[in-house]
Simulated scan of single mutants.
Amino acid sequence: MAHTIHGKKKLLARVRRIQGQAAALERALEQDADCTAVLQQIAAVRGAVNGLMAQVLEGHILQHLGDPDTPAPQRERDVATVASALRSYLK
């Protein structure tokens, strides 16, 4: 996935922020934090993961499905890959 390699630095920064948010969620749970604070932290983690998914998916679509030079059989495989990822993610 060449698009993830080009955006590797930004993607890794997003992943590290997600790790920090997940660690904060773990600390909140360990410290018996208020339910509202825990729910807010869960929402933050979820939003961050959704943003990461959107960024990678957009890059994949633009790189693979938007390239007019991609042969039809490859494009069909790429469409199936994106559809599978979406089905899995939206469960």
Rank of each mutant, 00 (worst) to 15 (best):
K9I: 06
D78S: 07
H64L: 03
A23N: 11
D34I: 01
L86H: 04
E26R: 03
I61L: 09
C35K: 00
M53L: 14
D69T: 08
A28S: 03
V82L: 13
V82E: 12
T4G: 06
T81V: 11
L11K: 00
L57F: 15
R46E: 15
V82W: 10
A48R: 11
T70K: 01
G66S: 05
A33Y: 02
G7E: 12
K91Q: 06
I5P: 02
H64W: 03
R75D: 08
K10Y: 08
H64D: 05
A23M: 03
R87V: 07
R87K: 10
A24T: 07
S88L: 11
R27W: 04
I61P: 05
A54K: 15
A43P: 11
V56I: 15
A85K: 05
A44K: 11
L57P: 08
H60V: 03
Q40C: 11
R16N: 13
A48V: 10
A37L: 08
D78Y: 09
A48W: 13
H3E: 07
M1V: 03
P73N: 05
A83E: 13
Y89S: 09
Q41P: 10
T81N: 12
E26I: 01
E30Y: 04
T4Y: 07
L25Q: 02
P73Q: 02
Q55E: 15
S84Y: 12
L62S: 14
A33T: 00
H60E: 07
A80Q: 12
L62R: 13
V15Q: 11
E58R: 11
M1T: 07
Q19T: 00
M1Y: 09
A33H: 03
E26Q: 09
H60G: 03
L39R: 09
A37M: 03
D67I: 02
E76F: 08
R75G: 08
A33G: 01
A13R: 06
V79Q: 15
R27V: 01
L62A: 15
P71M: 00
V79E: 15
S88H: 13
G59D: 10
H60K: 01
E30K: 03
E76A: 14
Q19W: 04
A24S: 13
A22W: 07
V15F: 10
M53I: 12
S84H: 14
Q19M: 07
G20V: 02
R17S: 14
A48L: 12
R75K: 15
A80Y: 09
A37F: 04
Q31P: 02
D78E: 15
E26Y: 03
A13P: 01
R14Y: 11
Q19A: 10
H3Q: 07
A2M: 05
V45D: 11
K9H: 10
E26T: 04
L90M: 07
V45W: 12
K10W: 05
Q31D: 12
L62N: 14
